[in-house]
């Protein structure tokens, strides 16, 4: 079947026109902000649609943002919270997924359903009690608080994806290991865990993106300047310097670019991860 055959509703050119137009619509707001962040104030207003030229080029916004805010610290906070959460979710999520998908025991189905509740019910609805709990544990304004809540938030979907994945691991491997007298722990850590590696991309996307972008929990659990994540940091910074267009555009660009670069590098695995496993 070729593109020519679909002439009836719209031809190949029509398909490309629609997809191309939508791509432009999806990209130009981001592009516009990035382009203007490299211009001096006058040029931002005089000719917002132009690219920065030698005359209009300026890094004043970036200098101001780096001078007035702890941008590096926000970035570090976001990175550490996200990566530590991901590591914990992968390890204990894989352990639980393994137990639920491999062993027959009383209450297995019930426990699987229990662990899946969090896929449908947003954790935010428990915020009042989460804050109380964090206060009781003396963890307010710590990254530990964020990690604990994010681990709980990410586990249900991670366990769901990882169990689906583990069910596809051929039984021979496990049986052979058991015949050799390897313990259940040895099987999990030496045979299963390395085999799960391909699922990490999928779990990674579903775990990291919501955490990196979250405003809610940093805002209520860890709003101090020392623990602010990049999303919260940018939100507060822009609230303060709302009229300083250079700073606003530069801080947005600095929040966008790292994600964009990582996304473009990993987009292939990432989208394959979404389309192949999890949700059918």
């Amino acid at each position: 079947m070729s593109m020519q055959k679909m002439r009836k509703p719209l031809g190949a050119a029509g398909v490309h026109a629609i997809l191309g137009a939508y791509t432009v619509l999806a990209l130009w707001p981001i592009f516009l902000v990035i382009a203007n962040s490299f211009k001096e104030r006058k040029a931002i207003f005089r000719d917002p649609l132009a690219l920065p030229t030698i005359d209009s080029f300026s890094l004043i916004g970036f200098e101001k943002v780096l001078g007035k805010s702890s941008f590096g610290l926000y970035l570090f906070n976001s990175l550490s919270v996200t990566l530590i959460t991901l590591a914990i979710v992968l390890l204990i999520g894989a352990m639980a997924a393994w137990a639920l998908s491999e062993y027959k025991f009383k209450g297995n189905t019930l426990l699987s359903i229990y662990m899946a509740i969090g896929i449908m019910v947003p954790i935010r609805l428990g915020s009042v009690s989460i804050l109380q709990l964090i206060v009781d544990l003396d963890l307010t304004n710590t990254r530990t608080a964020l990690v604990l809540v994010y681990v709980a938030q990410s586990l249900p979907l991670a366990i769901f994806i990882l169990s689906e994945f583990m069910r596809q691991i051929p039984g021979d491997l496990k049986e052979a290991a058991r015949c050799d007298g390897i313990s259940e722990y040895g099987i999990f850590f030496h045979i299963i865990l390395p085999l799960v590696r391909p699922a990490i991309a999928t779990v990674g996307v579903f775990t990291m993106v919501p955490i990196w972008n979250d405003l809610w929990f940093p805002l209520i659990l860890a709003p101090s300047p020392e623990t602010a994540t990049i999303t919260l940091g940018v939100q507060q910074f822009i609230g303060q310097y709302v009229t300083d267009w250079n700073s606003v555009l530069a801080s947005l660009t600095m929040a966008i670019l790292p994600v964009l670069i990582i996304y473009l590098i990993f987009s292939r695995q990432l989208i394959r991860g979404i389309t192949s496993g999890a949700v059918k």
Partner: peptide
């Protein structure tokens, strides 16, 4: 295998929702 995930999930998600 189950304990860490069940504990954290119960303490920081299910308990706060019920509470």
């Amino acid at each position: 295998f189950l304990a860490p995930a069940v504990l954290i999930y119960t303490l920081f998600m299910i308990y706060p929702l019920l509470d």
